[in-house]
Design a protein around this nucleic acid. Structure first.
Length: 299
DNA sequence: TTTAATGT
């Protein structure tokens, strides 16, 4: 009797041990999948970010609701999306020189982006007096990165309200200079662009088109990332312009844009390179005088 | 007039 119960006890113990072992094996496989999957995701994420940024994606200092954002990945460009401003705080993309005769596909339709959480419809800007202004531009992205990237630039998460005189004149002239003048000079450029808001959030909190807060200005940073001595050019352009102003009237340093936006651009730069690239206004090498007063194509 | 966009 005691022998029987003892053997029963041993076999029970053996069963629970083997179950424990097979559960353990199953758990091991699950953990392996999580580790491998996370690693693969990290790898792809980094590859994607490296392809569209130089010296790191923009970051924000400490806790700040108006500058914190999350990165949306698109074909051809990245977006730093703010659920507070309900705006793309920055877009990052790279361009290369393309031929003068480069033709792109016809303009795609604007499209809603469910990732914004806020429902931003394609018709929300109608009658507002503001254009749906691209941050990552249609032409440059299409010419360099192809059709599916071009389609992505028409996501509403890439739009922010721009006065027509700015969007169709001064800003368009700047975008044209990037592709027709700067890209051929340097072969390869890193561009970061986005909106500027008033210093006091409450001053502007109800100034919106639909859900989207209206910026007071826009910045564009253009970098020629030479390995030894990178060059940078930066602009801030306000909403209220005539459109025919010289581009170089709006030159600023990257430090000034960081002060206006609360963002830190190119966080991976070494301190000594950063001090020169971001703190000094240097226009040598860009031949700005050749494009500064070029007229717009849409008069 | 499509390297911008609106409104018809």
């Amino acid at each position: 009797m005691t022998l029987l119960s003892a053997s029963w006890g041993v076999s029970l113990l053996g069963k629970s041990l083997s179950r424990w072992r097979s559960n353990g094996r199953r758990l091991g496989i699950v953990v392996l999948f999580i580790v491998a999957g996370t690693g693969l995701w990290e790898f792809q994420e980094r590859q994607h970010k490296d392809a569209y940024t130089w010296m790191g994606v923009p970051t924000w200092e400490a806790f700040s609701p108006t500058t914190m954002h999350r990165v949306l990945r698109n074909d051809g460009y990245l977006v730093g999306w703010s659920d507070v401003r309900i705006n793309p705080l920055w877009v990052s993309y790279q361009v290369e020189a393309v031929g003068d005769d480069t033709r792109i596909g016809s303009r795609p339709n604007f499209q809603a982006d469910w990732r914004t959480l806020w429902p931003i419809g394609t018709g929300d800007y109608a009658g507002s007096g503001y254009d749906r202004g691209h941050m990552a531009p249609n032409y440059a992205i299409a010419a360099v990165h192809g059709r599916s990237a071009q389609v992505d630039t028409f996501l509403m998460s890439n739009m922010t309200p721009q006065r027509p005189q700015l969007n169709r004149q001064l800003w368009q002239r700047l975008e044209e200079a990037v592709m027709d003048h700067f890209a051929p000079r340097f072969d390869h450029l890193q561009v970061i662009t986005g909106p500027v808001f008033p210093a006091n959030f409450m001053d502007n909190v109800f100034n919106r088109v639909g859900f989207v807060e209206v910026p007071e200005a826009f910045y564009k940073i253009i970098v020629a990332p030479h390995s030894d001595a990178p060059l940078a050019l930066a602009f801030v352009m306000p909403q209220d312009v005539r459109g025919n102003e010289p581009l170089d009237d709006y030159l600023v340093t990257i430090d000034e844009i960081e002060a206006l936006t609360g963002l830190n651009f190119f966080p991976d730069l070494s301190a000594d390179v950063e001090a020169v690239l971001e703190g000094e206004l240097r226009t040598q090498g860009w031949a700005l005088e050749e494009v500064s007063r070029r007229p717009g194509r849409f008069q």
